[in-house]
Design a protein around this nucleic acid. Structure first.
Lengths: 121, 121
DNA sequence: CTTCATGCAAAGTATTTGCACTCGG
DNA sequence: CCGAGTGCAAATACTTTGCATGAAG
């Protein structure tokens, strides 16, 4: 099953680069102007393909909705428990992948949770 | 809105201690024997309350289903991309919370992704 | 041409909510 | 007693799937 390069796939990818940790729905909304005829399922399918190819990263947070990130550098995230805002953090301390005979590691995710300044008021 | 101590809440908490990163559905299934009349919504509601109280931790992984963990020590997790198995890892390198005037941090989560030995065959 | 990709709508999952009833304090 | 908690079913939110059509190579 070889993969083709389609206009929709690249459109989805470009949307990712213009948005900050968008959900699939946000990508879909954004594309209403760029490619009005695109279907929601196509967005989901292409986000999955791009993520499988390692061009983007799929993120998981407490709001139960998947977010996507075109920045594939191993940075960290801060998530506000209150407004659910996501803030990129540089990967200050690099964690080395754990060694074990039970598995091999190829990726890591580091998230910090708390409350952002606006929500502390 | 003061909180009451109910039989169901403690039953859910005890289920968590007997299960390994269960989903809400798994807790519910487990409780069919201990408390057959418990409702699915009560399980969800109590998992939310317990997690809010810090007695358990809610975990987010690529399978889109929330998992819960009665082990609130800051340990790490390994998740197999293939079978979605979750393995506890000791927090070998402790990450310090980042300092910023934009937010305050009170919790962190560290996940490693890869393929477990069984799935490498 | 061949077959992967798309768009739509319908179907699945996981979780939340409305409501009358129950029970803890 | 009074209101938070419960159990049920219905509703919601997010994502996936089936299928006929379209387009990439």
């Amino acid at each position: 099953m070889q993969r083709r390069s389609t206009k929709q796939r690249e459109t989805v990818y470009h949307a990712l680069m213009h948005l900050y940790h968008p959900t699939a729905e946000e990508v879909y909304e954004y594309l209403r102007s760029e490619a009005p005829s695109i279907g929601r399922a196509t967005v989901f399918r292409n986000l999955a393909v791009l993520s499988e190819e390692g061009r983007i990263v799929k993120l998981f947070f407490p709001d139960e909705v998947a977010h996507y990130d075109a920045n594939t550098d191993g940075h960290y995230h801060f998530i506000c428990r209150h407004c659910e805002k996501i803030i990129d953090l540089p990967a200050t301390q690099k964690l080395s992948f754990p060694k074990s005979d039970r598995f091999t590691v190829d990726e890591q995710s580091v998230n910090f949770y708390g409350v952002c300044r606006e929500c502390q008021k």
